[in-house]
Amino acid sequence: MTPESFEPRIIAFLCTWCSYRAADEVGKARQPYPAAIKIVRVPCSGRVDPQWVLAALERGADGVIIVGCPKGNCHYKSGNLQALKRFALVRRLLQEMGIDTTRIRQDWVGAGDGEKLLSLFCGMVEDVRVKGPLAAL
């Protein structure tokens, strides 16, 4: 499969308070974002259960990105910190199991920063397109 013919599937977990609003900003500005990104809105990035990351990969996602509120701006004060700690271990788990951990990303985007979210999305889609599909678990 050539990179051109491969359309990745990437699950983006966005928190409802910052990153999902940033996605809204992108929409309001009528800026297109890659169809490869499938957004799942969650109350908080700290709500993303590591099981969901594995479930996404098992069901055919080629990458997962978790985006929460910037440091110090979590609506629930420390939810994004929880997400950060979980991510460190999930990444390690996938690495030890031989999965390319650049397929799993985490970042922080403020409600008004649609530009940053868009560039995260585009960058990830392009990277994963080059990597090709994730081998079936």
Binding site: D49, P50, Q51, V53, L54, A55, K71, L81, Q82, L84, K85, R86, F87, A88, L89, V90, L93, Q106
Partner: peptide, 19 residues
């Protein structure tokens, strides 16, 4: 998934502010 559940639990015990 037992391992993912364990990871979530271990993360909650960790002290960290930065990646």
């Amino acid at each position: 998934d037992q391992s993912a559940k364990a990871v979530a639990f271990l993360a909650a015990l960790m002290h960290a502010e930065e990646a």
